[in-house]
């Protein structure tokens, strides 16, 4: 039963690629949190990342591969699942599944759209409003770029909406990783579910705080 075509194999691939992306989100969250300390911190953080030049592209290629696996199998598995359950009940009650769980495909696609925009804006810096300046110490001024970019109400709203999608996606997704790779048992399952829920809330609060604080001029 192949990993690439099998029922369970593809779920394992979804889980493993998801795990790498969640790990990236945690690292990204820690890095971004330097913005709350001040402009100097996040600019210094960005500068340090730049110094890891040799590692950046292999890392990006790896993450792109993980993303591609996750998106490809996410879409194909969902289409298969719709096909396996074509006739809906006239009355349907869902005793245990969650809104977050049942909307994974939609939150996932929204996150994909967000990711494309986010990379164009802050990684490749090719969206029209991007402010590219250097700070007093001659470093690229990430702080000013972020503040200028997220002061746009539409952009900030899209960021917050996307973080709600990330919250829902990880709320179901994180515990799902452990189930799909077979680590759950009586003892561990409640813990993994709790870890997933807490992480999802932390992602939502910390990531959304950035556009919200910029929009309310707390960060300026």
């Amino acid at each position: 039963m192949s990993l690439l075509t099998g029922n369970v194999g593809r779920k394992v691939l979804m889980a493993v690629s998801g795990l790498f992306m969640v790990t990236f989100v945690v690292a990204h969250l820690l890095g971004n949190s330097t913005i709350f300390v001040g402009p100097d911190w996040i600019n210094a953080y960005a500068e340090h990342l730049k110094e890891l030049d040799l590692l950046v592209w292999p890392f990006r290629i790896f993450m792109f591969a993980m993303l591609s696996i996750h998106v490809f199998f996410g879409i194909t598995l969902t289409l298969e699942n719709w096909g396996a359950n074509p006739d809906k009940y006239a009355v349907s009650r869902r005793p245990r599944s969650t809104f977050a769980g049942r909307t994974m495909i939609w939150t996932g696609l929204l996150l994909l759209a967000f990711l494309v925009f986010h990379l164009l804006q802050f990684t490749f810096k090719i969206t029209p409003e991007v402010v590219k300046v250097v700070d007093a110490q001659g470093r690229f001024d990430v702080y000013t770029m972020m503040v200028a970019g997220l002061r746009n109400k539409m952009v900030a709203a899209f960021y917050v909406l996307s973080m709600v999608a990330l919250f829902l996606h990880t709320f179901h997704g994180i515990q799902s990783i452990f189930q799909s790779i077979g680590l759950n048992n009586d003892r561990t399952m409640p813990k993994f579910i709790m870890i997933g829920k807490i992480s999802a809330v932390v992602f939502l609060v910390v990531f959304s705080a950035i556009p919200i604080l910029i929009l309310t001029w707390v960060l300026s």
């Binding site: 029922n7 369970v8 699942n81 396996a84 769980g101 049942r102 994974m104 799902s176 799909s180």
Partner: peptide, 16 residues
């Protein structure tokens, strides 16, 4: 697993 898939069952998405 193979037969399960051939029978037309969907994939588990951990909804429980």
């Amino acid at each position: 697993i193979e037969v399960m898939q051939k029978c037309g069952f969907g994939n588990c998405a951990n909804h429980y």
